[in-house]
Write a protein that binds this DNA or RNA. Structure first.
Lengths: 207, 207
DNA sequence: TCATAATATGAATATACATTCTATGTTGGT
DNA sequence: ACCAACATAGAATGTATATTCATATTATGA
């Protein structure tokens, strides 16, 4: 129980927290923020309502934590892909492909986010607690723009309107992921993403 | 006051109804379904809360009516564009271009819808009252698919995965409209749509 | 002008939660 | 086994807001 090592109690507490977060995420992604009550979360996570408040200040705060986790995870998975030393073309291909793996995990986040705020495309910062996940999204979008712009500057990609291209790419990926969540079929998702890839890459590569 | 002509009273009643609907639409599109109270609608429309219930059974039902109006309007504007006797290419171009006119009007609907359900892309019928607007959207998407497929069959368009193409086109248009709603600048919207048009048409036309 | 019907009103009621609080269990050290 | 310290429980409280309803206002036509 010395002070630089975490106690079992602390470990358990953290574990319980993540359990609650995980069940809450399931619920939020199924029904959306407003249609999930603390009661619901309590039942699903097999804790009492009061107990939830030992872990989280409020429903808002619980939700916010999920949102931030989400942002972190997405940035962590997708960010590095755009920073390798491969060609711009390859970076973009990898970026799109990766969505088939991160989908199962991130789908819930996407759904949750979308169900609460309506869109994943950055909008005027809805509330204020929103900030972090908003920044993360903006950051990611900027990285993609950068890759495309660099490619264009190097003349390995066709010159196009980067703004529109990236908006289109990102929204298409999101729509696709939401769409595939209906009937989850890994093979189908792979195929769809491959098609999306050739769709969007054809635009950038002169044959 | 004979029975086949509408009385002034009835006309007024209808007018009052649409006034309420219009103000409610403003509110819903600004803040989303859950963040607007009947009180809010009453104040904005300059009626008392109780009066609203003379016109609508419930908040839900009021919202549902707006949703259906929305679906009808969209279908009415965009449907015919896909049914002219122009070339498939031209139909698609017109479809995209038309978004710059219908934007101001439809933006509110889109925002309202999105703020309540998270996406405009058809998903599994969320509730059940959703049915109509769901069907309308599916119908529209099918029409676009048909146009693309016909074009491909006639060999005037390049063969691609229609499913993905249409999903991508529609979601990009929506994202773009939401995006442009931030800073409303008609010229910019036109330019953006022109770029989207060439983006998506390039994919279908072999130079 | 008055009686009646139709509308509109907003205070009162009902309901659905978020949040708090006290009682009850549980754990780990002695 | 006993005692803190801590964790859990779920009933009680407070609040926001959808919905109702008794009353007031207005319109209609004799």
């Amino acid at each position: 129980m010395d002070n630089d090592q975490i106690t079992r109690k602390e470990r358990e507490r953290i574990w319980h927290r993540t359990e609650i977060l995980s069940k809450a995420l399931d619920l939020f992604s199924e029904k959306g923020f407003h249609n999930v009550s603390m009661q619901d979360i309590a039942v699903r996570s097999e804790y009492a309502v009061g107990t939830l408040y030992n872990f989280f200040q409020s429903k808002e705060q619980l939700f916010e934590e999920l949102r931030n986790n989400c942002a972190d995870k997405i940035l962590h998975v997708l960010g590095p892909i755009l920073e390798t030393d491969e060609s711009e073309e390859q970076k973009l291909r990898n970026f799109i492909k990766t969505h088939s793996e991160s989908t199962e995990e991130n789908l819930k986040f996407i759904k949750m986010y979308v169900s609460a705020y309506g869109t994943l495309t950055p909008t005027q910062s809805s509330s204020d607690s929103d900030k972090k996940s908003y920044e993360v999204k903006a950051m990611l979008i900027n990285k993609i723009k950068e890759v495309v712009n660099t490619g264009i500057a190097k003349k390995v990609l066709k010159p196009i309107d980067t703004e529109i291209y990236v908006l289109s790419l990102v929204s298409s990926l999101q729509a696709f992921i939401l769409e595939s969540s209906k009937s989850y079929d890994k093979a189908k998702v792979k195929r769809g993403l491959a098609n999306l890839e050739s769709l969007f890459l054809d635009l950038l590569i002169s044959k």
